[in-house]
Design a protein around this nucleic acid. Structure first.
Lengths: 235, 235
DNA sequence: AAATGCAACTTGTATATACAAGTTGTAGAA
DNA sequence: TTCTACAACTTGTATATACAAGTTGCATTT
């Protein structure tokens, strides 16, 4: 395998340890001196790696104290559903996710919203549809399209933690690195009205997203429709 | 004045030079060796500063070539209004901004959406209201509230580039560093319908934002209402 | 005129050392 | 038992040096 810079190796390794739960949120990493012994390198090389993890927001360093793990990973893909009564409480609703349509391979629609590369076009996509509910009330419908590139056994393997993104990380080593998202208020179609348990024509929040990943040329596309009568969506 | 770390001084200085146009987007910064002479310090200290500017996204460094300026500043507060026909063209609409209400001091509403600190409460706020139009059609109404803390002559000074954020940077050295934003689809009230030139009850996108700034304890709050029939809002 | 080689530049990576400044735990004094 | 001083830890800042690897411009060769 290609040899990468020492500090990048340390950075990847530590990042992986945080993601895999070797170090949990709230834990302190080994000290810089300990890490430099462990990786048989200098404290400066270790600090270079830690600087990057800090810039990424995963750790918080404090002189005299240590390097505290603050995040497992930067979840830029997260959309938080927040009820109004919770804003003051800072508590998030319990969200249940159910498949309306299990992941399956298919061709791209001719009029797909986003421009697609030649590679994506020829590979086709995997489509899945989910509905999110809180207290048994549907609040979000989400259609997701993935380029069907190297996703071995994706459709036949159950999701990790019922999460598409956890599944991509754990099973395919693919992580989201950048997101473009667009918002609109639209009138509910009959189909959306049925899914979201509201009246046709009622305002629905549409979120159109393109997520760039660590795998070059591989994107995740999603279209979400939300009943925001009792909730806001935080992005 | 308080003495700060050398590398932070270099970082601030370079950042200021980029913001002030000493170095424009597309320019190369002086080389690391040149900068270490200029600041009478080591190349490693300069690199520390440049690492941070790179992490912030302002510069792009390439081995053998130099440090290219890519952004004047990280405009995390930007909401892009994109028309549908433009998505394929990648061209943004020409947006005109008009005050519905010029900035003026006032008390906070008792039922203000966001929690406020004691300092904010006692200082009161400055409120302003603007409407954004494209091709003479209104598409966004925005109510903005600023804590009235140290904003000397804010209400009596015309905006820089008709921009609230440019004004805060240039005149008050206040920059946005983090944004919390929430989205909802709501039915237009009569007032919104009048302002946005659409029918009452029609879907309108509501964006509720709290922007944290470089000035501790000072926040900017905004509430935007958008007619997204022909546009999406990219955040 | 075009191609090639190379010097001089650039950033990238790494090591080494030293001291500053914050935190923590423990031993000893009160 | 409580307080204090201090050692030993932590991260933060800075300097110095060396070499790797990419880019560019220019002199020389073909």
């Amino acid at each position: 395998m290609t040899e990468i810079a020492r500090y990048l190796q340390v950075q990847k390794d530590l990042r992986r340890s945080i993601i895999d739960g070797v170090f949990e949120v709230g834990d302190y990493l080994p000290s810089e001196n300990e890490l430099s012994s462990q990786y048989d390198t200098t404290r400066m090389t270790v600090r270079n790696a830690l600087n990057n993890l800090e810039a990424e927001g995963l750790i918080d360093r404090k002189k005299g104290k240590g390097s505290l793990v603050k995040l497992k990973r930067k979840s830029i893909e997260l959309l938080s559903i927040k009820g109004f009564t919770e804003i003051m409480k800072g508590k998030e609703s319990k969200i249940d996710t159910v498949f309306l349509k299990e992941p399956e391979p298919r061709k791209w629609d001719d009029d797909f919203y986003w421009g697609l590369s030649e590679e994506e076009l020829s590979a086709g996509c995997i489509h899945l549809s989910r509905i999110r509910m809180t207290e048994n009330r549907p609040i979000m419908v989400e259609e997701t399209f993935l380029s069907n590139i190297d996703l071995i056994e994706f459709c036949s393997t159950p999701f990790v933690n019922k999460s598409l993104f956890d599944t991509l990380i754990v099973n395919h080593d693919i992580e989201m690195i950048r997101v473009v998202q667009k918002f609109r208020a639209i009138r509910a179609t009959q189909q959306l009205a049925d899914s979201l348990d509201l009246r046709k024509g009622y305002p629905v929040l549409e979120i159109i997203r393109k997520l760039e990943t660590t795998k070059p040329g591989f994107y995740v596309y999603s279209f979400s429709y939300c009943n925001t009568n009792d909730f806001t969506i935080e992005a």
